[in-house]
Simulated assay, not measured.
Amino acid sequence: MTRHNADVIVIGGGIAGASAAAEIAADREVLLLESEPHLGYHSTGRSAAIFIRNYGNATLRALNALAAPVFDDPGEIADGPLLSPRGELLLAAEDELDALEDYADGAEGLERLSAAEACDLVPILRPDPIAAAVYESDAQNIDVDLLLQGYTRLLKARGGRIVTGAPVTALRREGGAWHVTAGGEDHAAPLIVNAAGAWAGRLAGMAGAAPITLTPKRRSAALLPAPEERDIDAWPLFGGVVENWYAKPDAGKLMVSPADADPVEPHDAWPDDMVLAEGLHRYECAVTVPVTRVERSWAGLRTFAPDASPVVGFDSRVDGFLWLAGQGGYGVQTAPALARIAAGLVAGAAPVDETLLTALAPQRFD
C-alpha cells in the first residue's frame, strides 16, 4: 500500500466535504476521500434543492444568512448564478395555526395569505382545508450540481486531491498524525475533517472521538406528471406547515415528498412504499387533482444531532479531529457558511461570532 501525505484529510465527498475541502485548500494541502464512485452520491444528489432563509431553528437561520451572500455572488465557485426564483407557500389547517405562528416567529420576508390567495398561487389547492398560509417570495431554487461542480473545480485549482471509491477501513492517531486506510491505500495528515454524512457517527467511533448521537433519517420523494393543461413552472414549493408533505415543480413535473423523517441505519436509501403512499395521500387531500402515476421515486438520508443543529468544531477527546456533521435537511443551503467556518477553525481563526460557534460546537453535548 502506498502512503500519501497531506495537511488535512476531509472524509466525505458530499457538498459539506467538497465545499469545506475547497475552502481549506486556500492555504493547506488537502486530500478529499469519498467512499462512493463519485462525489455527491447520497444526500447531496437527492436534495430538494431549495434555499429557504427562514428554514430551521435559530442557529440554522443564522447559517442561512451567512450563506446567502455566497449564493448571490459565488465568485470563484461558479461563473453563473446558483439560485433561481421559486418561492415557498406553507399551508395550515385550523389545528395547525400554532405551528404557523411558530414558523413565523423571528422569520423575515413572509407574507400572510388567505386560502383564496394561496389558491391563486397554486390553482390545484383545495381552499376548504386552508385556515391560513404564509408565502416567502425569496425562497429560491439551488443549482446543486453547479454548486458541487464549482467547489470541486475550486478544490482542484487550489491543488487539492480527490480520491473516490475509497471507503475508510482503518483510522488511528500516531506520532501527531492521523493514519487513514481507505480504498486499499494509506494516507496521513495531522488533521482530519469528519464530513461523512450519515456515516459520521461511525467514523467518530473509529477515531475514538466524543460519542455524539447522530441519527440518519430517511426522506422520500416521488416524481409525478404535471397536472394536465397546467403550466406549473411558476408555482412555488408548497406544503403543510407541520411538514407532513410538500410539492415542488421540477423541470415540468411535480416532485412530491411525504416529508418523512424515519430513523434508519446508514445505507444507500430507498423509499418505503407504504410511507410514500401515505404521503401521496396527504398531498391528494390538499389538492383537486388525483395522483394517477408515479414516474419514479427515491430517498435520501438527512442526519441530525439531538438539537437539530449541525455539529462543527474540534473534538474534545482526540486531537486534530474536526466535526462537520449533523446538517440534517439543511446541508446544501448551509454549505457555503459551514465550509468557511470549518476553514476558519482549521486556520485557528474565529470565523463567526462566539455565540454561533458555541451553538455548533461538539462540546455542547459533553
Score class of each variant (00 low, 15 high):
H4R: 15
H4K: 09
I11R: 01
G14I: 02
G17F: 11
A20D: 06
A25N: 07
L33I: 07
E34I: 09
E36H: 07
H38Y: 15
H38E: 14
Y41C: 11
A49C: 07
F51C: 01
Y55K: 08
L60D: 05
A65F: 04
P81R: 08
P85V: 11
L89M: 13
L90C: 08
L90K: 04
E101K: 08
L110T: 10
A115Q: 03
D120T: 15
R126H: 08
P129C: 14
A131H: 08
V134S: 03
E136W: 07
A139I: 08
Q140Y: 03
L146G: 02
L148P: 00
P167H: 15
V168R: 02
R173N: 11
E174R: 11
G176R: 05
A182W: 08
D186P: 00
D186K: 04
I192W: 03
A198V: 10
G201D: 07
G201A: 12
G205N: 04
A207L: 06
R219P: 14
W235R: 10
G239I: 06
G240L: 14
V241P: 00
N244I: 12
W245V: 07
K248R: 15
L254P: 05
A259H: 02
A261C: 11
P263L: 13
P263W: 13
V275H: 03
P290Y: 00
P306S: 05
D315F: 03
S316M: 15
G320R: 03
L322D: 03
P336M: 09
A342R: 01
T355C: 12
L356P: 05
L357K: 06
A361K: 01
P362T: 12
R364C: 10
F365V: 12
